[in-house]
């Protein structure tokens, strides 16, 4: 009856990972504590803030509510994976537009912005607000974030 550990195998940022985890382990703890991927930020822990957003099979989910057993055989991307070959266009736009204050919410925003640009390559400001509505910035720097995302979108389209 007692199943203490479960074997999980998944891909993180292109790398194959095999781990024994407790079935109650949350993805955020696996990624941060076991794999050292600290771009995945612990914000609220209750699905309100979006700071722990990661892509699982290309879709954004919250690592603080996702069980690690649930990503078995799936493909996970964190900000470390997006910026493997240096800063991405979105990261550069965030820096240029001053879209970062304390920076804690930034990885979640960039992951969501990346997801949006894959779905909607030419977003309007309302698209940006719609896609980023699950991410909170408590320094209240939204205007610069929206500007940065639109700038990255433009540079991607013209590329």
């Amino acid at each position: 009856m007692c199943i203490n550990m479960v074997k999980v195998a998944f891909k993180v940022n292109g790398e194959h990972i095999e781990l024994d985890v407790s079935p109650r382990e949350l993805l955020i703890n696996t990624l941060r504590s076991k794999l050292g991927l600290t771009s995945v930020k612990y914000g609220c822990g209750i699905g309100e803030c979006g700071a722990c957003t990661v892509l699982v099979n290309g879709e954004p989910v919250l690592a603080c509510l996702t069980l690690t057993v649930d990503v078995n055989s799936k493909d996970i991307i964190t900000l470390e994976g997006l910026s493997k070959n240096g800063l991405t266009d979105i990261q550069r736009a965030f820096i240029e537009e001053g879209a970062i204050q304390c920076g804690y919410c930034t990885p979640g925003f960039i992951i969501m912005a990346e997801y949006m640009l894959r779905e909607v390559p030419n977003p309007t400001i309302s698209d940006v607000k719609e896609y980023l509505k699950g991410n909170l910035c408590r320094c209240t720097g939204y205007i610069n974030i929206f500007r940065a995302v639109l700038k990255a979108a433009k540079s991607r389209v013209s590329r």
Binding site: C2, I3, P23, R24, E25, L26, N29, Y42, C44, V69
Partner: peptide, 14 residues
């Protein structure tokens, strides 16, 4: 804290 699911809860994956 909200980091983890309490350890006294036993999880089973059918």
């Amino acid at each position: 804290m909200m980091y983890v699911i309490p350890e006294d809860i036993e999880f089973i994956v059918p």
